[in-house]
């Protein structure tokens, strides 16, 4: 059961914040619209934009793909913040028919498909750790975990996945 948690492939992470003019420019460089609906992600290829707050997104992209430079160029004239957090957190993928039940041991959100559909993402808590939670498939979740919490989160999920005899 423990092996239902794996590392996500390496990726670059940036937190983007800005007002409408900067966001408009950023979308030009991204090639797709930033999701404006609360707690939703949008993707094109291997670039993903996860809504974190009303003016805040987590941008996931391939390592060294130059996206950050293109975003900076596009937004240059407009006040904005584009902060690299690639090494602050790590991506974990939890996948399998039990994924929802195992996460629910420590996450207080309703993770049923009606309440937390594919494409939904949010910061929340898993036991004593803050996580970013993104449902990428009916039985697959991507977790963004601050790296010093990785051992804790993995051990918690491993313990949560043990079915009592």
């Amino acid at each position: 059961m423990v092996d239902l948690v794996t590392h996500a492939s390496p990726m670059a992470r940036h937190v983007l914040r800005g007002r409408p003019a900067a966001l408009e420019a950023a979308q030009g460089a991204l090639g797709f619209a930033l999701p404006r609906q609360a707690c939703r992600a949008a993707s094109k290829g291997d670039v993903h934009a996860l809504w974190l707050g009303p003016d805040e997104w987590l941008i996931l992209s391939g390592v060294s793909d130059g996206l950050a430079e293109r975003l900076e160029d596009a937004m240059g004239a407009h006040p904005h913040a584009l902060v690299e957090v690639s090494d602050r957190q790590i991506g974990l993928v939890i996948s399998g028919a039990e994924a929802e039940a195992v996460l629910s041991v420590g996450c207080p959100l309703d993770l049923g498909l009606d309440a937390f559909p594919v494409g939904m993402c949010t910061r929340t808590v898993l036991a004593k750790a803050e996580i970013g939670l993104w449902r990428t498939g009916p039985n697959t979740f991507h977790l963004e975990v601050w790296r010093s919490f990785e051992a804790y989160v993995r051990q918690f999920l491993a313990a949560a996945a043990v079915v009592p005899a």
């Binding site: 609360a38 974190l52 707050g53 009303p54 949010t122 910061r123 929340t124 808590v125």
Partner: peptide, 12 residues
């Protein structure tokens, strides 16, 4: 009337 913060969410 109180201030609250959605710290582990949108953080607002």
């Amino acid at each position: 009337a109180e201030r609250w913060r959605h710290l582990h969410g949108c953080a607002r």
